Simulated assay, not measured.
Amino acid sequence: MKDIERRILLGRVAGAFGVRGELKLESWTEPRSAIFNYQPWIVVSPSGQESTVSGVRGRDTGKHLIARFPDVDDRDVVEAMRGTEVYVARSSLPPPKPDEYYWVDLEGLDVKTVEGVSLGQVSHLFSTGSNDVLVTRGDRERMIPFVQPEFVKSVDFDANLVIVDWDPDF
């Protein structure tokens, strides 16, 4: 069973916005403004200082995602927050829909071909814009397009296993 209290990186403070303590926020949620739905946040400064914050409000201006932290109303304080990462506990996210996955839930799963050849474990995933890519590490690193059902045949969390239709020599 996966550790449900794992942290998920949802965004990062990009800098100050205006002079009243608002900040620009990068968000990797879809849609990007959904980041405000998942609170409390665990914020980690570039120096590693960690705190928990609730009640962050924000808006999407189209160009930027703008946020206001409670009790922060000074541009200098916000500038010092540049690079701060925003995490949430995995347990605070809603369950994924059928055939959808949080990338963090796939990390560490064993990967085998449809013929039973082990390709290692899921290291991480990344997006290319056209599709996501599953990166496995075993005897070597492999990058497999996360395209269902063409290449990724099944994901079985109970068996800790991803089955792929992939040439082990590729």
Score class of each variant (00 low, 15 high):
25 L>T: 03
25 L>M: 03
26 E>R: 13
27 S>Q: 02
27 S>M: 01
27 S>T: 02
28 W>A: 07
28 W>L: 10
28 W>C: 08
29 T>Q: 09
30 E>T: 15
30 E>A: 14
32 R>H: 10
36 F>I: 04
37 N>I: 05
40 P>K: 09
40 P>F: 10
43 V>Q: 02
43 V>E: 01
43 V>G: 01
43 V>C: 05
45 S>W: 03
46 P>W: 00
47 S>H: 06
47 S>Q: 06
47 S>G: 06
49 Q>M: 04
49 Q>P: 03
50 E>T: 03
52 T>G: 03
54 S>R: 02
54 S>F: 02
56 V>N: 07
58 G>A: 04
59 R>W: 13
60 D>V: 11
61 T>A: 06
62 G>N: 07
62 G>M: 06
63 K>D: 15
63 K>P: 00
64 H>M: 12
64 H>D: 15
65 L>V: 02
65 L>A: 05
65 L>S: 09
66 I>E: 00
67 A>C: 05
67 A>Y: 05
68 R>W: 02
68 R>S: 04
69 F>D: 00
72 V>W: 02
73 D>L: 09
74 D>M: 07
75 R>S: 06
75 R>C: 01
76 D>M: 11
79 E>H: 06
79 E>R: 14
79 E>P: 00
81 M>I: 00
83 G>Q: 01
84 T>V: 04
85 E>R: 11
87 Y>V: 06
88 V>Q: 00
89 A>K: 10
89 A>H: 10
89 A>W: 12
90 R>A: 12
90 R>L: 12
91 S>E: 11
91 S>W: 11
92 S>G: 04
92 S>R: 10
92 S>W: 04
93 L>G: 02
94 P>C: 10
95 P>D: 07
95 P>L: 08
97 K>C: 13
99 D>T: 14
101 Y>V: 00
101 Y>N: 05
101 Y>T: 00
102 Y>N: 08
102 Y>P: 15
102 Y>I: 00
103 W>S: 14
105 D>H: 04
106 L>F: 04
106 L>H: 03
106 L>S: 04
108 G>Y: 07
109 L>D: 03
111 V>E: 02
111 V>I: 10
114 V>Y: 05
115 E>D: 11
115 E>S: 15
116 G>T: 04
116 G>V: 04
117 V>T: 07
117 V>W: 07
118 S>C: 05
121 Q>H: 12
122 V>C: 04
122 V>L: 01
123 S>K: 14
124 H>A: 07
124 H>C: 07
125 L>Q: 09
127 S>Y: 13
128 T>W: 07
130 S>P: 01
130 S>I: 03
131 N>Y: 15
132 D>L: 10
132 D>E: 14
134 L>V: 00
135 V>Y: 06
136 T>W: 10
137 R>I: 12
138 G>Y: 06
139 D>P: 05
141 E>Q: 12
141 E>Y: 09
141 E>N: 11
143 M>T: 12
143 M>Q: 13
146 F>Y: 06
146 F>M: 03
147 V>G: 10
147 V>N: 09
147 V>E: 13
148 Q>W: 12
149 P>A: 11
150 E>V: 11
150 E>K: 15
150 E>T: 14
151 F>E: 14
152 V>S: 07
152 V>D: 09
154 S>W: 07
156 D>E: 00
157 F>V: 09
157 F>D: 03
